[in-house]
Protein backbone atom coordinates (compact mmCIF):
# COMPACT_ATOMS: atom_id res chain seq x y z
CA UNK A 1 0.00 0.00 0.00
CA UNK A 2 2.22 2.83 -1.28
CA UNK A 3 1.92 6.30 -2.72
CA UNK A 4 3.73 7.21 -5.90
CA UNK A 5 4.68 10.78 -4.85
CA UNK A 6 7.55 11.21 -2.34
CA UNK A 7 5.79 10.21 0.86
CA UNK A 8 6.05 12.14 4.10
CA UNK A 9 5.74 8.91 6.06
CA UNK A 10 7.30 5.81 4.55
CA UNK A 11 7.30 2.35 6.11
CA UNK A 12 8.99 -0.39 4.15
CA UNK A 13 9.25 -4.07 5.08
CA UNK A 14 8.41 -3.37 8.70
CA UNK A 15 8.69 -6.37 10.96
CA UNK A 16 7.54 -6.31 14.56
CA UNK A 17 6.82 -8.98 17.09
CA UNK A 18 6.51 -9.54 20.84
CA UNK A 19 6.99 -12.40 23.20
CA UNK A 20 3.94 -13.22 25.24
CA UNK A 21 4.46 -15.89 27.87
CA UNK A 22 7.68 -16.88 26.13
CA UNK A 23 5.85 -17.44 22.83
CA UNK A 24 6.90 -15.23 19.90
CA UNK A 25 3.94 -13.36 18.41
CA UNK A 26 4.41 -11.67 15.04
CA UNK A 27 2.43 -8.46 14.53
CA UNK A 28 3.93 -7.22 11.27
CA UNK A 29 6.03 -9.21 8.83
CA UNK A 30 6.86 -6.84 6.00
CA UNK A 31 4.39 -3.98 6.34
CA UNK A 32 4.60 -1.19 3.76
CA UNK A 33 2.90 2.17 4.05
CA UNK A 34 3.29 5.56 2.41
CA UNK A 35 1.48 8.69 3.51
CA UNK A 36 2.04 11.95 1.64
CA UNK A 37 2.42 15.27 3.37
CA UNK A 38 -0.93 16.83 4.24
CA UNK A 39 -2.87 13.57 4.22
CA UNK A 40 -5.49 12.63 6.83
CA UNK A 41 -5.50 8.86 7.26
CA UNK A 42 -7.83 6.85 9.46
CA UNK A 43 -6.57 3.42 10.47
CA UNK A 44 -9.26 0.93 11.39
CA UNK A 45 -9.24 -2.71 12.23
CA UNK A 46 -10.25 -5.26 14.81
CA UNK A 47 -8.51 -5.59 18.17
CA UNK A 48 -5.12 -7.25 17.78
CA UNK A 49 -4.76 -6.16 14.17
CA UNK A 50 -1.70 -4.04 15.01
CA UNK A 51 -3.21 -0.51 15.06
CA UNK A 52 -1.67 0.41 18.41
CA UNK A 53 1.68 -1.09 17.48
CA UNK A 54 1.67 0.92 14.26
CA UNK A 55 0.82 4.11 16.11
CA UNK A 56 3.51 3.43 18.74
CA UNK A 57 6.12 3.00 16.03
CA UNK A 58 5.03 6.15 14.20
CA UNK A 59 5.25 8.02 17.51
CA UNK A 60 8.77 6.69 18.11
CA UNK A 61 7.56 5.11 21.33
CA UNK A 62 8.32 1.66 19.95
CA UNK A 63 10.88 0.59 17.36
CA UNK A 64 10.47 -1.93 14.53
CA UNK A 65 12.46 -5.15 14.67
CA UNK A 66 13.28 -4.74 11.00
CA UNK A 67 12.54 -2.67 7.91
CA UNK A 68 12.77 1.08 7.48
CA UNK A 69 10.58 3.76 9.04
CA UNK A 70 11.08 7.26 7.74
CA UNK A 71 9.13 10.37 8.64
CA UNK A 72 10.18 13.48 6.75
CA UNK A 73 13.91 13.08 6.53
CA UNK A 74 14.32 11.20 9.79
CA UNK A 75 14.94 7.44 10.01
CA UNK A 76 13.16 6.54 13.26
CA UNK A 77 14.20 2.91 12.97
CA UNK A 78 17.84 3.96 13.34
CA UNK A 79 17.37 6.36 16.26
CA UNK A 80 18.03 5.59 19.91
CA UNK A 81 15.47 6.23 22.62
CA UNK A 82 16.74 9.70 23.52
CA UNK A 83 16.92 10.81 19.89
CA UNK A 84 13.36 9.61 19.22
CA UNK A 85 12.21 11.45 22.33
CA UNK A 86 13.81 14.68 21.07
CA UNK A 87 12.42 14.04 17.60
CA UNK A 88 8.91 13.66 19.02
CA UNK A 89 9.23 16.92 20.87
CA UNK A 90 9.93 18.84 17.65
CA UNK A 91 8.05 17.03 14.93
CA UNK A 92 4.84 15.52 16.22
CA UNK A 93 1.82 16.04 18.39
CA UNK A 94 -0.13 13.23 20.01
CA UNK A 95 -3.86 13.29 20.80
CA UNK A 96 -4.78 10.65 23.36
CA UNK A 97 -8.06 8.77 23.75
CA UNK A 98 -8.41 9.80 27.41
CA UNK A 99 -6.94 13.29 26.82
CA UNK A 100 -4.07 12.63 29.29
CA UNK A 101 -4.12 16.15 30.68
CA UNK A 102 -2.22 16.69 33.89
CA UNK A 103 -4.97 17.34 36.42
CA UNK A 104 -2.96 19.65 38.64
CA UNK A 105 -2.06 21.99 35.78
CA UNK A 106 -4.41 24.57 34.28
CA UNK A 107 -5.55 24.36 30.67
CA UNK A 108 -2.90 26.88 29.62
CA UNK A 109 -0.17 25.06 31.55
CA UNK A 110 -1.15 21.75 29.97
CA UNK A 111 -1.00 23.28 26.52
CA UNK A 112 2.34 24.89 27.33
CA UNK A 113 4.04 21.55 28.17
CA UNK A 114 5.54 20.83 24.70
CA UNK A 115 6.82 24.40 24.48
CA UNK A 116 8.93 23.87 27.59
CA UNK A 117 11.12 21.65 25.44
CA UNK A 118 11.93 24.55 23.13
CA UNK A 119 14.20 27.54 23.71
CA UNK A 120 11.35 30.04 23.97
CA UNK A 121 10.83 32.87 26.40
CA UNK A 122 7.87 32.90 28.75
CA UNK A 123 6.24 35.61 26.63
CA UNK A 124 6.72 33.66 23.41
CA UNK A 125 5.22 30.58 25.01
CA UNK A 126 2.24 32.54 26.26
CA UNK A 127 1.55 34.03 22.83
CA UNK A 128 1.56 30.56 21.27
CA UNK A 129 -0.65 29.08 23.99
CA UNK A 130 -3.20 31.90 23.63
CA UNK A 131 -3.22 31.46 19.85
CA UNK A 132 -3.97 27.71 19.92
CA UNK A 133 -6.52 28.02 22.71
CA UNK A 134 -8.28 30.57 20.52
CA UNK A 135 -8.01 28.18 17.58
CA UNK A 136 -9.70 25.33 19.46
CA UNK A 137 -12.38 27.69 20.77
CA UNK A 138 -11.29 27.75 24.40
CA UNK A 139 -10.00 31.30 24.72
CA UNK A 140 -10.77 32.59 28.19
CA UNK A 141 -10.49 29.14 29.78
CA UNK A 142 -6.74 29.38 30.33
CA UNK A 143 -6.92 29.15 34.09
CA UNK A 144 -9.47 26.37 34.31
CA UNK A 145 -8.36 22.95 35.48
CA UNK A 146 -9.23 19.84 33.44
CA UNK A 147 -11.65 18.62 36.10
CA UNK A 148 -13.76 21.75 35.51
CA UNK A 149 -14.22 20.95 31.81
CA UNK A 150 -16.38 18.57 29.77
CA UNK A 151 -14.82 15.64 27.90
CA UNK A 152 -15.09 17.48 24.60
CA UNK A 153 -13.39 20.56 26.04
CA UNK A 154 -10.64 18.44 27.56
CA UNK A 155 -10.01 16.78 24.21
CA UNK A 156 -9.81 20.19 22.56
CA UNK A 157 -7.18 21.12 25.16
CA UNK A 158 -5.44 17.88 24.20
CA UNK A 159 -5.51 18.94 20.54
CA UNK A 160 -4.24 22.41 21.45
CA UNK A 161 -1.35 20.77 23.29
CA UNK A 162 -0.63 18.56 20.27
CA UNK A 163 -0.42 21.48 17.82
CA UNK A 164 1.06 24.22 20.00
CA UNK A 165 4.62 23.53 18.87
CA UNK A 166 3.43 23.52 15.25
CA UNK A 167 4.43 19.95 14.38
CA UNK A 168 3.98 18.60 10.86
CA UNK A 169 2.40 15.35 12.08
CA UNK A 170 -0.53 14.64 14.39
CA UNK A 171 -1.06 11.14 15.72
CA UNK A 172 -4.50 10.57 17.19
CA UNK A 173 -5.27 7.46 19.20
CA UNK A 174 -9.05 6.99 19.33
CA UNK A 175 -9.52 10.75 19.84
CA UNK A 176 -13.29 10.45 20.07
CA UNK A 177 -13.42 7.10 21.87
CA UNK A 178 -14.42 8.69 25.15
CA UNK A 179 -16.80 11.34 23.80
CA UNK A 180 -20.51 11.60 22.98
CA UNK A 181 -21.46 12.00 19.33
CA UNK A 182 -21.82 15.77 19.41
CA UNK A 183 -18.49 16.32 21.12
CA UNK A 184 -16.89 13.72 18.87
CA UNK A 185 -18.10 15.56 15.76
CA UNK A 186 -16.73 18.86 17.09
CA UNK A 187 -13.34 17.28 17.70
CA UNK A 188 -13.31 15.61 14.29
CA UNK A 189 -14.28 18.89 12.62
CA UNK A 190 -11.34 20.44 14.32
CA UNK A 191 -8.98 17.75 13.09
CA UNK A 192 -10.33 18.20 9.57
CA UNK A 193 -9.79 21.96 9.89
CA UNK A 194 -6.19 21.41 11.00
CA UNK A 195 -5.63 19.09 8.07
CA UNK A 196 -7.23 21.24 5.41
CA UNK A 197 -6.24 24.72 6.52
CA UNK A 198 -3.01 24.20 8.42
CA UNK A 199 -1.82 21.25 6.30
CA UNK A 200 -1.16 18.97 9.22
CA UNK A 201 -0.57 15.34 8.30
CA UNK A 202 -2.87 13.29 10.51
CA UNK A 203 -2.87 9.59 11.28
CA UNK A 204 -5.90 8.62 13.37
CA UNK A 205 -6.53 5.19 14.82
CA UNK A 206 -10.23 4.66 15.42
CA UNK A 207 -12.92 2.02 15.82
CA UNK A 208 -15.63 4.50 14.84
CA UNK A 209 -16.67 4.38 11.16
CA UNK A 210 -18.29 7.83 11.58
CA UNK A 211 -14.95 9.24 12.70
CA UNK A 212 -13.20 7.64 9.75
CA UNK A 213 -15.50 9.59 7.39
CA UNK A 214 -13.68 12.79 8.34
CA UNK A 215 -10.39 11.40 6.99
CA UNK A 216 -9.26 11.70 3.37
CA UNK A 217 -8.71 7.97 3.27
CA UNK A 218 -9.26 4.97 5.51
CA UNK A 219 -6.92 2.01 5.80
CA UNK A 220 -8.19 -1.28 7.18
CA UNK A 221 -5.64 -3.30 9.06
CA UNK A 222 -6.11 -6.98 9.75
CA UNK A 223 -3.62 -9.54 11.03
CA UNK A 224 -0.72 -7.18 10.48
CA UNK A 225 -1.46 -6.08 6.94
CA UNK A 226 -3.58 -3.47 5.19
CA UNK A 227 -6.45 -5.26 3.52
CA UNK A 228 -8.57 -2.41 2.20
CA UNK A 229 -8.33 1.30 1.43
CA UNK A 230 -11.21 3.70 1.03
CA UNK A 231 -10.90 7.26 -0.14
CA UNK A 232 -13.31 9.97 0.88
CA UNK A 233 -15.66 11.06 -1.82
Amino acid sequence: MTETATPYIALSGIRKGYRIGGEPISIFSGLDLAIPHGDFVAVMGPSGSGKSTLLNMLAGIDRPDGGTLRIGTSRLDQMGEAARSAWRAHNMGIVFQFYNLLPMLTAAENVELPLLLKPLTRKERRIRVDRVLDLVGLAGREKQYPAMMSGGQQQRIGIARAIVSDPGLLLCDEPTGDLDRKSADEVLEMLRFLNRHLEKTIVMVTHDPQAALYARRTLHLDKGDFVEEKRAA
Partner: peptide
Amino acid sequence: TVEIATVRALGFSR
Protein backbone atom coordinates in the same frame (compact mmCIF):
# COMPACT_ATOMS: atom_id res chain seq x y z
CA THR B 1 2.18 6.35 35.71
CA VAL B 2 -0.06 8.01 33.14
CA GLU B 3 1.21 11.51 33.90
CA ILE B 4 4.85 10.48 33.70
CA ALA B 5 4.31 8.44 30.54
CA THR B 6 2.31 11.29 28.97
CA VAL B 7 5.00 13.92 29.40
CA ARG B 8 7.65 11.42 28.32
CA ALA B 9 5.56 10.72 25.21
CA LEU B 10 5.46 14.49 24.58
CA GLY B 11 9.25 14.46 24.58
CA PHE B 12 10.24 15.11 28.20
CA SER B 13 13.55 13.53 29.17
CA ARG B 14 14.12 10.55 31.45
